[in-house]
C-alpha cells in the first residue's frame, strides 16, 4: 500500500542516538551536556560540538521550549505522510538551548507563532525499534 503509514521513515537508533530514543520511549526528553564546557547539545554525538571534548553526559531535559520557526506542510515527501496533510512541523528552541524538530499538535498547530511556549510529549512506541516520536503541544494545553 503506497499510503501505508508504516512506510514513514522511522529512526533507526545507532550508538550515538540509542539513549535518546530509549528516553523517548519512557517519556523523557534526553539531551547531552559536555562535562568539560557545560554546553548542552542536540542531535547527540560522541563529542561535544562546542569544544570537541569526548563523552558528553546524558541528562533529562525540561521538555519545555519555544517555537523558533514552523511551517504547515501541504506537499509531503512521500505518500506515507499524505493522510496527515496539512501538518505543522516546527523547530523548538529548548529551555536548555538546543533546537529540536518535531510536529505541533492541538491548539499549538492551529495558529502557531514564533516565541509560543510549548511542551514536548511523545507518541506511543511503534515499529521494530519501539520509536516514540516527540511532538509538541501548547503550554496551556499541557
Amino acid at each position: 500500500m503506497a499510503e501505508d503509514q508504516s512506510l514513514k521513515p522511522l529512526p533507526v537508533p545507532n550508538a550515538d542516538t540509542a539513549a535518546f530514543w530509549e528516553g523517548c520511549a519512557c517519556g523523557e526528553l534526553r539531551l547531552q551536556r559536555c562535562t568539560a564546557c557545560g554546553t548542552a547539545q542536540f542531535p547527540p554525538r560522541v563529542v561535544c560540538a562546542a569544544c570537541q571534548s569526548g563523552a558528553p553526559a546524558w541528562e533529562v531535559a525540561s521538555g519545555r521550549g519555544r517555537i523558533a520557526s514552523y511551517t504547515r506542510v501541504h506537499r509531503p515527501p512521500s505518500p506515507a505522510f499524505k493522510a496527515d496533510l496539512p501538518y505543522v512541523v516546527a523547530l523548538v528552541a529548548l529551555e536548555e538551548g538546543p533546537r529540536i524538530m518535531l510536529g505541533l499538535r492541538g491548539a499549538a498547530a492551529e495558529a502557531p507563532r514564533i516565541g509560543d511556549a510549548v511542551l514536548i510529549r511523545f507518541d506511543p512506541p511503534a515499529g521494530p525499534h519501539g520509536i516514540a516520536l516527540p511532538y509538541a503541544v501548547a503550554m496551556e494545553d499541557a
Partner: peptide, 12 residues
C-alpha cells in the same frame, strides 16, 4: 534531511 531527527517528521 537528518534521517533520525528531521525526516521522521515529514519534512521536504
Amino acid at each position: 534531511g537528518h534521517p533520525q531527527f528531521e525526516r521522521p517528521f515529514g519534512v521536504t
